[in-house]
Simulated scan of single mutants.
Amino acid sequence: MSEALLDIRDLKTWFATDGGVVRAVDGVDLRIERGETVGVVGESGCGKTVTARSVLKLIDMPPGRFAGGQILWQGRDLIPLPATEMDKIRSKEIAIVFQEPMTSLNPVYTVGDQIAEVLREHENLSRRQAIERAVEMLALVHIPNPKKRVHDYPHQFSGGMRQRVMIAMALSCRPKLLIADEPTTALDVTIQAQILELMQEMKDKFGMAIMLITHAMGVVAETCQRVVVMYAGKVVEEAPVEALFGNPRHPYTQGLIRSIPRVDRAAAHKERLEAIPGTVPSLLDPPPGCRFAQRCKSARDICTQGIPPLKEVTPGHFVRCVL
């Protein structure tokens, strides 16, 4: 197997709390090849964002810590790297777009100055050169009148335009991997579609890979080549997007797909959406065996007698389920 761009192996990111240790990410394996888009899906609290932030070591330590595993970036383990080395990788090689740009952009600096700061840090440009490049990046992400808007502040942009600014900032150094953490959550559906289309356009232009963190299965179906499904800190299924939607094998994945609204079906049959019963288990004290067993209609005694391994059931399709 060729060397992946990003290869996460048995990653454990845990947090110390007054109530005990929260195993937010508990043995995650995830590969991203050059130029591909991988969706990481699951409900809130499953460990998606902690996995993403772990890649860039954006975890507050303490209370967080890496309890095990490796994060191999082009074959080099990032976990032992000192802060000075990680600073060279962030933005330059791996960039991230967060779900709420208003909390990520500094309200007292113009968007041009914020993009220019990233460029001056990594590209050794003068301020004038960096501002010129910032104008180019704003134009690239289709912000009208970029020469004027480069001097505006974040509050002068709409939510969709702020997200475009974040993408411009993330891509300003031409990274090899873009991590997009719920990039369309706070936007209406029309703007969501525009942002996803923009990300695809930028991916094609720069030849980068994308790690798309989302809970929206429809977004994954539209944009990704491969899907990783997480539940309670673990990967429970991984497959090419066609295989996952065509033949989901894990009961949790099946539940997620059944809960997607279907316009054609709803109009014809007035069907109610099917909810997954129960709640996500506490990661302070995870249940023995399969972490989904307490919510699974097909669960048997064997499901509580040990955590099942992630097995390859068909080429490229992996499932963590004894059934």
Rank of each mutant, 00 (worst) to 15 (best):
L283Q: 08
V322D: 12
E222Q: 13
V135C: 02
A243V: 10
V280C: 15
T185Q: 06
T103A: 05
L284P: 02
L138Y: 07
G246N: 06
P80F: 04
V28G: 05
G289F: 05
L6D: 01
D113R: 11
K147S: 15
A266R: 13
L11K: 07
F318G: 04
E100Y: 11
M230Q: 11
R65S: 14
P281Q: 07
G207K: 02
C224M: 10
P107S: 00
V319M: 00
R34P: 09
P251N: 07
L310V: 04
Q74Y: 09
P82Q: 08
E36P: 03
D113N: 12
P277G: 11
D77T: 10
L125K: 08
G255K: 09
V235C: 03
A52I: 13
Q99A: 12
Y252D: 01
L178K: 01
G278M: 08
V228A: 12
V25K: 01
V41P: 06
Q156G: 05
P308T: 07
H155F: 01
I96E: 06
N247R: 11
R65E: 14
G255E: 01
H250W: 12
V22G: 07
E85S: 07
N106E: 00
M211P: 06
P146W: 05
R258N: 11
T84M: 14
A4P: 12
D204V: 15
Y109W: 07
A243F: 10
E132W: 09
Q156M: 10
V319P: 01
E100L: 04
T13E: 11
V25A: 03
M217Q: 03
V235G: 09
